[in-house]
Nucleic acid binder design. Structure first.
Length: 269
DNA sequence: AGTTATACCCGGACGC
DNA sequence: TGCGTCCGGGTATAAC
């Protein structure tokens, strides 16, 4: 569901709108979304200032004053809406963070969560994640090295958060399509040109998707025209049987490593 | 060692 | 309108 482009988009938008704002109220309708008792959460978060919003992999980190951190993972179906009471979604909110008149509403949190950590706890939570796609240290050469030791198939690697952080089911398929490689390919068997193409495609697809506001269509705030723009730009994801934009052959939908997988069986090799 | 199965979770979509 | 049923899918962990 929400992956690197969506979460990076949300990070940027939230920094524009709630950075340096004080959390003036908290509503917890689903205590299970928290990792500490509600009263402890409330005591630590109420009155804190959102110094900034960071992101790691598919998770947002609300950096609060007092070295407190809220780690948000939307998982499946989790969404956010930022707005006033009038903009509040007509469905159950699991958590609400209020900033005066404005509130950040979290909806659809089932497996998703908003966890409270100190500095060390946060670092421990994020320690096992793989490199960020745009990490300066993740050069084409290093990416090629990673592929040499990649296990299973390409899609499995791309979606493994410990191998590479932030890519999920949608963008792994989009990246494979853009690079002309089948998701079922053995990573170690890619030649240097294919590895280079995959690296370039990874960054270009994510860049394009971020610019378009990701593929999740729920607007983040009233008047938001950007969020979800990539939905119509997806070349293969959720487009089973539709004609390939490159060659016209129908997009294939099949299960790979027990995950939904879309690709063109003609122009991806 | 790599692949597959399962539990987690529950709102909402769907069917009658 | 109302009630019952079932699905989704990232992640951790267990099982194969």
């Amino acid at each position: 569901m929400p992956e690197w482009p969506e979460m990076e988009h949300y990070r940027q938008e939230l920094n524009k709108r709630i950075q340096n704002r004080t959390i003036s109220g908290i509503t917890v309708n689903r205590p299970k979304s928290l990792n500490v008792p509600e009263e402890e959460f409330r005591a630590a978060v109420l009155g804190a200032v959102v110094e900034r919003v960071d992101r790691r992999a598919k998770q947002l980190v609300f950096v609060l004053s007092g070295e407190r951190y809220l780690l948000l993972h939307l998982m499946l179906g989790g969404m956010m809406v930022l707005g006033t009471e009038a903009d509040k979604p007509d469905r159950t909110t699991q958590i609400e963070l209020h900033f005066g008149e404005t509130a950040l509403y979290f909806i659809g949190l089932r497996l998703g969560y908003l966890h409270l950590y100190g500095k060390q706890g946060l670092e421990a939570e994020l320690a096992s994640l793989g490199p960020e796609p745009f990490d300066a240290d993740l050069t084409a050469a290093r990416f090629a090295d990673m592929l040499k030791t990649g296990k299973g198939n390409l899609k499995t690697c791309l979606t493994d958060q410990h191998w590479l952080a932030g890519i999920g089911n949608c963008y792994s398929d989009e990246i494979c399509f853009a690079s002309g490689l089948l998701p079922s390919r053995r990573p170690a068997a890619l030649d240097e040109h294919e590895a280079a193409r995959l690296y370039t495609s990874m960054r270009s697809v994510l860049t394009e998707a971020l610019r378009a506001g990701g593929y999740m269509e729920m607007p983040l705030y009233d008047g938001d025209e950007r969020t979800g723009g990539f939905n119509e730009l997806c070349r293969v994801y959720d487009r089973g049987d539709e004609p390939c934009v490159r060659c016209g052959n129908p997009i294939v939908f099949q299960t790979l490593s027990s995950r939904k997988c879309f690709f063109c069986g003609n122009c991806q090799t």
